[in-house]
Amino acid sequence: MKDTFSSYHPVVNFVYFVAVILFSMFFLHPVFLGISLVCGTAYSLYLNGRRAARFNLLYMLPLFLIFAVMNPVFNHAGATILVYVNDNPITLESIAYGFAAAAMFVSVMIWFSCYNAVMTSDKFIYLFGRVIPALSLVLSMVLRLVPRLKAQIHVISNAQKCIGRDVSNGNVIQRAKNGLKILSILTTWALENAIETADSMKSRGYGLKGRTSFSNYRFDKRDGLGMAALLVLIAVVLLGAVLGENNMVYFPALYAKPFSALGLIVYAGYAGLCLMPLILNLWEDAKWARLLSKI
C-alpha cells in the first residue's frame, strides 16, 4: 500500500477522520477553513492521484463557486451593504459567509473522499464488530451478498434476453413486466441458495455459545505513538475552541479575534493535525531513502 497512514490501526484512522471532519464542519475561521481545504485536497491527491484531481476540478470547484454565489443572492443579512440588485441588498458579510460555508462544505466532502480510501470495509467492520459483535458478521455478509446479487441479475437478464423477455425487449408495459419477473426470479434464487449458506454456517458451528471475532489488526507501539500525537493535536485545537480562536462572527458584522501568539499555536496545531497523514508519508519516504543510501 502506498499510503502509510492507512497501515495504522483502524482506531487511529477512525479517530483522525472523526476529528478532522467535525473540526472542518464547526470551525468557520478563515484560517481554519483554508488549512482544512488545502490539506484535505493535498491528501486526496496523494491518495487517489489523477482520479482525485478530476473529481476536485469537475465537481468540487463548481460546487464551491455555486455555494459562494448562492449565499449572497438569497441571504441579505449583514451591515455592510455593497450594492442593490432589484432592491435586494448584497452585503459584504453574506459574501464572506458564502465563501466560508462553501469552503466548509467542500472540504468536508473532500475529507470524506479520503475517508473512503483509507477506511476500507475491513476496518469499518472491525471497529463496529468490537462494539456490537453480531453487527460485524452481518455487515460482512451483506458485503458478500451485494456483488453476488448484482452478478446474478446479470445472468438472469441475459437468460431472459435470449427468450426475448429482458427489460430491453418490447414496449414499456412489457419491459416493466419483464423487469418484475427478473426481480421475482432473483428473489427465489436468493432464498433457495440461502438455505445452503445456512447449512454451511451451521455445519461450521455458527450458533454455539461464546463466538469470538478475529481480525488482522494489532495495536502496536507505532499506533500508540500515532494516537498520542493525534490526541495532543486535538487537545490543542479544542483549547483554541474554548478560547474562541477557531471561529469568527460573520453577522451582523465581520469580527475575528485579533491576531495573537496563542492563535498562532492553535493554527499550527490544526495544520499539524490536517497534515499528519502527509507528514507520515514524507517521513516514511525519507526513511526509505536513508536506508537505501546506507547500502
Binding site: L137, R144, R148, N193, T197, S200
Partner: peptide, 13 residues
C-alpha cells in the same frame, strides 16, 4: 463438511 455449490457456502466477504 463441504457442500456442492462453491458460492453458496461462503459466508463472509
Amino acid at each position: 463438511y463441504v457442500l456442492q455449490n462453491p458460492d453458496n457456502q461462503i459466508v463472509t466477504d
